[in-house]
Simulated scan of single mutants.
Amino acid sequence: MEDHSLNLVLLEQMLEWLGLEADVAEDGERAVEMACGGVYRLVLMDIQLPGMDGVEAARQIRGRAGIIQPVIVAMTASAYLEERRRCLEAGMEDVLIKPFKLVDIKRVIDAYLEPD
């Protein structure tokens, strides 16, 4: 889930290079629906989503009982410690600071996803 179309295209390409597919939510509400209704192991959550922001979306996902909880990694342009703290307090496991590189995405994949 990403707030800017060019960043989204680049992120999708990076994931494809790593052999992964992405499903995209157009806003925070849809991100919650998808994460709670699907079987996602990893959610890359942009903080600046339209409507419900990524932090609130993460809180709502974490608040849903009975679902398999995915790893949620924030994506933000803010390198401020307060932003990172806000994301972690909402239940996200990690934060990627934009602009990120393929090696950054690979680090997240390697850290949080078990090989199939």
Rank of each mutant, 00 (worst) to 15 (best):
L18A: 12
V39Q: 14
Y112P: 03
G38S: 01
Y112E: 07
E82W: 01
V108M: 01
S78D: 14
E26D: 04
L42R: 05
R62K: 05
E12M: 12
K98Y: 05
V43N: 01
P115V: 13
C87K: 11
E93T: 12
A25V: 13
K98L: 01
R62F: 04
R59P: 00
E89F: 01
K106Y: 06
A65L: 09
I109F: 07
R84H: 11
N7W: 03
D46G: 02
L102S: 08
I68E: 13
V95M: 08
L11S: 15
M45P: 00
A22S: 14
G37E: 02
L8F: 06
G66R: 07
E93I: 05
A57G: 09
E93C: 04
L88P: 03
E29D: 15
E29H: 15
E114M: 15
A35N: 07
E29Q: 15
D53P: 02
L88Y: 06
L18I: 06
M92T: 12
V24G: 01
G51A: 03
V24Y: 08
E29A: 13
L10S: 10
E33Q: 13
M45I: 00
Q13S: 12
E93M: 12
L81P: 12
N7M: 04
D94L: 00
E12K: 15
C87P: 07
V103H: 12
E89Y: 02
P99C: 08
V32I: 10
E93P: 06
R64G: 00
L8Q: 15
Q48A: 12
R84P: 08
I72Q: 04
G63Y: 02
M52Q: 03
A58D: 05
L10F: 10
V24L: 06
I97N: 10
V32F: 07
N7R: 10
Y80V: 06
E89W: 06
V103A: 13
P50L: 00
L8N: 11
L8K: 14
R84K: 15
V103P: 11
I47D: 01
G66S: 00
P115M: 05
M75Q: 11
L44W: 10
D53N: 13
M75C: 05
L113V: 12
R85K: 14
L15M: 14
A77D: 02
M1T: 15
P70L: 00
G51C: 00
F100M: 07
A111D: 12
A90C: 04
L6K: 11
G37R: 11
E29P: 08
R41V: 05
L42G: 00
E16F: 09
R41E: 12
Q69H: 11
A25I: 13
E26Y: 01
Q13W: 07
E12R: 15
L15E: 09
R84Q: 15
A57Y: 09
V32Q: 09
L102E: 10
I72E: 02
D3R: 10
Q48N: 14
D104C: 04
R59M: 02
E33M: 10
V73G: 01
V73L: 04
A77P: 01
V24C: 09
E114L: 13
M34F: 10
R64A: 05
D27A: 04
K101G: 09
Y40G: 05
I61L: 00
L20K: 13
L11R: 10
V108D: 06
G51Y: 01
A25H: 14
R84Y: 03
W17S: 15
F100I: 11
N7D: 08
A35R: 09
L15N: 05
D46W: 09
L42Y: 03
L10P: 07
R41F: 04
E21V: 05
S5D: 14
E29F: 10
